[in-house]
Write a protein that binds this DNA or RNA. Structure first.
Lengths: 256, 256
DNA sequence: AAGTGGTCTAGACCACCGA
DNA sequence: CGGTGGTCTAGACCACTTT
């Protein structure tokens, strides 16, 4: 009996707390509702505030909670489905009210950027910065790098956002051969964080897209989307339409 | 002069530390190298260990550091590119050494699963659990839900992994009409964490795929990939091949 | 002014690893 | 065994929001 031996590693308190809180917000709170403050929850569960915060950190990373300084902690709305442009459909430019150009510069590329674009280190690159919004909320930012040689017919006068529009327009005249994407996890640095109206270090989904045209890379886009509120969708449209499935539906992630 | 007024909000210590450490590991340490331990780093920078750990947490989330209990903190290798099956190519079954079936059950679906599959609540669903590995390392897990009516010709005898193989084989005989995907951030729960050999709460990229065939959903897959070590790639193959661009190359994410 | 979450401290003990 | 990262505590002060 008494041979406890190697207990299979006790569950950390913060992980247990997360499970308990998750059940609670699923069953007892509505979207947008404020849950009790951290000091009270910590007292109620008999743990230090730091431990409770560790549990809340997890739930925030999962997009289940939103914390607002000076306000409280709220139950988050389900993540927003953000369509990522399917191949064949269009260049990143096409009249898209969701995107707003916030800047454009032209300069020699950093060495790694030149390599990624497959161009000489001294060829100018146009860099367009855009912000994507849905429902008035900024959900993503993008930096689009376009080698000058891919858009040789730019009007010379425009500057900044005007020039950005010209770059996108010129891109649309090229025949898009295809695109290649990668998605990974990152954190928002200063400028991205500001555009997303979030603190630095906010987790983001980083989407890297290579646009191919004429046997070369005509554009390289790096987009970042708020990981807490966004679910990136890639599907071809016109498929069977059913209820969207989110990671929050943990049932479908459980086997046996 | 003395009018400090509204300083534009001071940068938190942990964020500054992250920046300093990031520069250091980029310039002074090689992949796999062990950096000084937390107590020494904290002393060296004159901060509490908890503050230093907050900075390391960020860098670990970004996939730049790996922490091993009892060993130390290592500089992480660049993320592994994990190809996510492009449309048209294949059903999730096709002889794929990367995936290993670890279990298969057949049961009535949870209500939400039935809704997501668009089937009656009493139709049996086959659930196949698989693990994806690259280079001996488990990088992802998957739960594949297949309505029984989509694979009516299953041999009756096989069980567990054998039955899983049968389900995949039957799927491959259907004509795939298309697939629809979503990617979002999640955390590994107990079983996934075990299969990925990571602690619970590990950040994962959750990929939800609907496979359509015959005007209905023939399969629903929920895959989870280690967010620290994986970069999911979606591209059509055969495009221009250049140096892969990762989020780690922050230069390409900076404009102006 | 009062209440919230955000940051930071200085310590403690534990679980795991290698020698 | 000594060293590492992982967890947890009890407290402090700050920045922000609302009243």
């Amino acid at each position: 009996m008494g041979t406890t031996g190697h207990e299979p590693a006790p569950e950390p308190k913060y992980w247990h707390l997360r499970t308990v809180l998750l059940r609670a917000i699923d069953s007892e709170f509505a979207t947008g509702e404020v849950i009790p403050n951290e000091r009270e929850l910590a007292a109620r569960f008999g743990v230090a505030r730091a431990t409770l915060r560790q549990a809340l950190d997890q739930l925030e990373l999962e997009g289940r909670l939103v914390r607002r300084r000076g306000i409280g902690t709220l139950v988050a709305a389900p993540r927003t489905a953000v369509p990522v442009r399917p191949a064949e459909e269009s260049w990143p430019g096409t009249e898209d009210a969701a995107w707003r150009i916030v800047g454009c510069t032209t300069a020699a590329p950093a060495p790694k950027l030149a390599e990624a674009l497959g161009i000489p280190a001294d060829e100018p690159v146009h860099t367009v910065r855009r912000v994507r919004s849905t429902g008035g909320q900024a959900v993503g930012t993008e930096v689009l790098h376009v080698p000058d040689s891919a858009v040789p017919h730019l009007p010379g006068f425009a500057a900044d956002t005007g020039r950005g529009r010209s770059v996108l327009r010129q891109l649309q005249r090229l025949e898009l051969a295809g695109e290649s994407r990668a998605v990974e996890l990152g954190v928002a640095e200063a400028e991205e964080a500001r555009l997303l109206q979030r603190p630095p270090g906010t987790p983001v989904l980083v989407v890297t897209t290579q646009y191919a045209a004429g046997g070369r890379i005509a554009a390289l886009a790096v987009s970042t989307y708020r990981a807490d509120t966004c679910r990136l969708t890639f599907g071809e449209t016109g498929l069977v339409e059913v209820a969207p499935v989110g990671a929050a539906l943990s049932e479908v992630r459980t086997a046996s």
